[in-house]
Design a protein around this nucleic acid. Structure first.
Length: 808
RNA sequence: GCCGCUGUGGCGAAACCGGCAGACGCGCGGGACUUAGAAUCCCGUGGUAGCAAUAUCGUGCAAGUUCAAGUCUUGUCAGCGGCACCA
């Protein structure tokens, strides 16, 4: 078969018949199958795209044949940093390079032969999309879910520009090598923490990989504890959060994160220079290093003191970078006797270590961090663990110094980016009215084309006079626009909704359409999105629900992660490793179907692994074998009356394949699905080799083979189906259904074990009782030989599997 | 460092709920066809010992639970993903 011609032929037929477009009028049950959209940073599809989209398209086709009205859209996540970096390097405008990349990728995606509904394509960088991204921002703002506060960015002092974490290599700027510092800017946030609890509990009912749910759970990081207020001598109050308030009598100092607003305020004049130096020093250390438990603890005394509310003791206030301003209250009470980090810090700085918890079983070795009995804690002495914490927290609440508190590790989502290639934040700053949202009817706030990218201390939009200069929507006086753009994760937090109504120019989507098509039934994409994109999208769905724009709680009912295809050397494919394998040559040589089929067969879908093309020829051979037998059998006459043992065997193989391929396709276990197809082909060849055969059975079996295989090799099977005189498209055929009767055998082979070691095999008639199976096993000569004179102690029968005889 | 995952033949992998480890395929060995090669077809193929029947070892490593462990538990080593401005 000339696959090139066959691919073109069927692709153009599908196109003409609008075969891949979602049929809104159909009354079949819908199935929204979605792959994460493409990011057009490179010009061409890479193996990762193929690996994500090829097999998932086979799943979508499988569902279609099973009678579902399948919606499988595709689009481009087109804003983002790489296009802008590319522009800085080459001078090619991000819009131009992105559009060019999209055009190439689109062509390649079409050539893949996937069932994408191109009529609902989305590109997030286009006005008619980002207009609604801005609209989303305004809705969140209206509802109090968008706000501004100071937050640090990575700042390269020599390029005078903000750097992404990715651009910071070992604490230095990737371009010029200067040491990167953290600098505070006022930036926009989305209040995702408001939904922390629901984002956590909502995980429960989702059909997602357990590991992904666990990662999100840990990311949200709920912890139940107590907030405690320490009064400073200056009159300021330091609030700390702790999960171990039962240790509060052992506090020997309080630590503020270096970024804490009180840090400079509390510092005494003598200590101020040291404090300032320390703050400057820690601004160069990233959070990952700061949290490292092996890194040596550093800190500085502020010179100030505060009072422990439970015992009136004065304790010194320190700054230390192992405390993060972004978590909890940005301050902790330090109990060196019962916390590893505090212990290390106190030891280094010679601070007191006071034991207030005793081990109930054995000696108390400090630091002792497990639950224990309170000691040296006045009238709380003798209380244990959870009860102790509850009593102490109640006491703290009673004296008005805090109380029980639930804390989340999850932080609000910083959406400001000091960059050009993104959706402008639709806000105006007016000297009179302050922060004013752009009225909805004035959207979109257009991203100007003529900008200067070269980094020189100001973000590109801030330098664009015409863009920045505007009038206040409220009072009409001169005002400036927000120069920052939105994080691209904002664009990708709602695209799955826009697909349902992509051309709507009055609203982001029609509610009825969205409620009908959504939620997404199956979402397929990389596991690297577990904590961010997938959490942000869930947040958007919930916020939009609460604002009355849609009627479901979760965007993605089922989630599947494809694995990562690594380079042949086992490293992630990258230019710097020089190990990039392009799909193009393979597609050119073997065809799109063979390449897809190989991706399905050669890897465990959710695992991925190093690239290796050893098996791709085998796939081509397999397809040839299928083609040969299909053409041969098609020419056979019908009829043939015999229905003997061989026919039963063939029919068993046929229905076994139907049963297992269906099950494996549903489970995204594509490699085993293809293996079962191969077994069926082997069985057909074997039967075809017999002198006498039942032609009708053989023809029907081959017909089922083509139907089973169609989702995995769509062009190839369309062509075979046509040559078999099948009517219409093979994808309009129902997927074969197994006949349970064909799968019933008279007897099953059991493994016979003596003392858990396999001795022999035995055929057991189906329907035998456990006692019958035991007696049969005992009567076997191999068993008797091993057990002569011994007494049977126990017998385990595993139905359909084995019998284990335990002798004394 | 923290969170999560993975580790099975020469290779890609499979193994439903704890039940015959290695399905399917690659590679390799042998054979058929052929003047020859390619292609195709058939047989074999975890390691070790043995002519063989067979024995014995075997799922990163070390323990444990169980009639039975690749699968569960604890510890440990290695690799991968994420760690909030790559997306």
């Amino acid at each position: 078969m000339n696959m090139k011609d066959v691919e073109r032929k069927w692709q153009s037929r599908w196109e003409k018949a609008k075969f891949n477009n979602f049929d809104e009028k159909s009354n079949k049950p819908k199935k929204y199958i979605l792959e994460m959209f493409s990011y057009p940073s490179g010009a061409k599809l890479h193996i990762g795209h193929w690996y994500n989209y090829g097999p998932t398209d086979s799943y979508a086709r499988f569902k279609r044949m099973q009678g579902y009205n399948v919606f499988q859209p595709m689009g481009f996540d087109a804003f983002g940093l790489p296009a802008e970096n590319y522009a800085i390097k080459t001078g090619v405008h991000p819009k131009d390079s992105t559009e060019r990349n999209i055009a190439t990728m689109e062509g390649q995606l079409r050539a893949m032969g996937a069932m994408f509904d191109w009529s609902s394509e989305i590109k997030t960088c286009e006005e008619d999309y980002y207009k609604w991204t801005q609209w989303m921002f305004l809705q969140l703002y209206k509802r109090g879910l968008a706000y501004r506060k100071e937050a640090p960015v990575n700042w390269c002092p020599s390029c005078s520009t903000v750097l992404a974490n990715e651009q910071v290599v070992n604490g230095a700027c990737e371009r010029c090598g200067s040491v990167v510092v953290r600098k505070n800017l006022t930036q926009w946030f989305f209040k995702i923490t408001e939904y922390a609890e629901e984002l956590l509990t909502g995980l429960e009912n989702l059909d997602w990989p357990e590991k992904t749910k666990l990662m999100q759970k840990n990311w949200i990081g709920k912890s139940t504890g107590c907030e405690i207020e320490f009064d400073c001598d200056t009159g300021d109050k330091i609030r700390v959060f702790t999960t171990r308030c039962d240790t509060v009598f052992g506090v020997s100092y309080v630590v503020l994160a270096p970024e804490h607003p009180l840090a400079l305020k509390l510092a005494t004049p003598e200590q101020l220079p040291a404090v300032e130096a320390y703050i400057a020093e820690t601004s160069k250390v990233n959070e990952i290093d700061r949290l490292s438990t092996t890194r040596e603890k550093t800190g500085v005394f502020t010179g100030a003191y505060c009072t422990n509310p439970v015992n009136g003791k004065k304790v010194p206030i320190y700054l230390a970078d192992y405390v993060l301003y972004s978590y909890g209250t940005g301050a902790v009470m330090a109990v060196p006797a019962h916390d590893e980090r505090d212990f290390a810090f106190a030891t280094k700085y010679g601070l007191p270590i006071v034991k207030v918890i005793e081990n109930t079983h054995g000696e108390t070795v400090l630091p002792f961090t497990e639950d224990g009995i309170m000691v040296g804690s006045l009238n709380f002495d003798g209380l244990y663990g959870e009860e102790a914490r509850s009593e102490v927290a109640n006491h703290i609440a009673k004296i008005g110094k805090g109380g029980k508190k639930v804390n989340y590790r999850l932080r609000d989502w910083l959406v400001s980016r000091q960059r050009y290639w993104g959706a402008p934040i639709p806000v105006v700053y007016c000297p009179v009215c302050g922060t004013v949202p752009v009225p909805e009817k004035e959207l979109p706030v257009r991203l100007p084309y003529d900008v200067e990218f070269h980094p020189d201390g100001k973000s590109p939009l801030a330098k664009h006079e015409k863009f920045m200069h505007t009038t206040c929507p409220q009072c009409g006086c001169e005002a400036t626009r927000e120069a920052d753009t939105l994080d691209t994760f904002v664009c990708s937090s709602w695209y799955y909704l826009r697909y349902a109504d992509p051309k709507n120019d009055r609203e982001p989507f029609d509610r009825e359409k969205v409620d009908k098509l959504l939620p997404v039934d199956t979402y397929v994409g990389g596991a690297e999105h577990a904590c961010m994109h997938l959490l942000y999208a869930r947040f958007f769905t919930k916020a939009l629900r609460d604002m009355g724009y849609l009627d479901f709680d979760e965007p993605f009912l089922r989630l599947v992660h494809q694995g990562v295809i690594l380079g042949p050397d086992g490293n992630r494919m990258s230019k710097s490793h020089g190990n990039i394998v392009s799909p193009d040559d393979y597609v050119e040589t073997y065809g799109a179907d063979a390449f897809r089929l190989y991706l399905m067969f050669g890897f465990s879908y959710t695992e991925g692994g190093p690239w290796n093309d050893d098996g791709i020829k085998a796939i081509a051979r397999f397809m040839e074998r299928v083609e040969k037998i299909v053409l041969k059998v098609t020419d056979y006459p019908s009829g043939g009356g015999m229905l003997g043992a061989e026919e039963k065997k063939l029919n068993y193989a046929r229905h076994f394949a139907i049963s297992r391929v269906s099950r494996d396709m549903e489970a995204f276990s594509f490699n085993t699905a293809v293996a079962r197809l191969m077994e069926l082909v082997n069985a057909v060849y074997k039967y075809d080799g017999l002198a006498e055969k039942n032609y009708t059975l053989l023809k029907n079996t081959v017909k089922d083979l083509v139907l089973l295989m169609a989702p995995c090799a769509p062009h190839f099977c369309e062509e075979l189906w046509e040559q078999m005189d099948g009517k219409g498209s093979v994808f309009e055929q129902p997927y074969p259904k197994e006949d349970p009767n064909a799968l019933v055998l008279d007897e099953t082979e059991y493994a016979v074990q003596v003392n858990s070691k396999i001795v022999c095999k035995a055929m057991v008639a189906n329907g035998s009782s456990n006692d019958e199976i035991r007696d049969l096993a005992l009567s076997l000569p191999e068993v008797q030989e091993k057990t002569a004179g011994k007494e049977l102690k126990k017998c385990v029968v595993v139905p359909g599997r084995l019998v284990n005889l335990i002798f004394g």
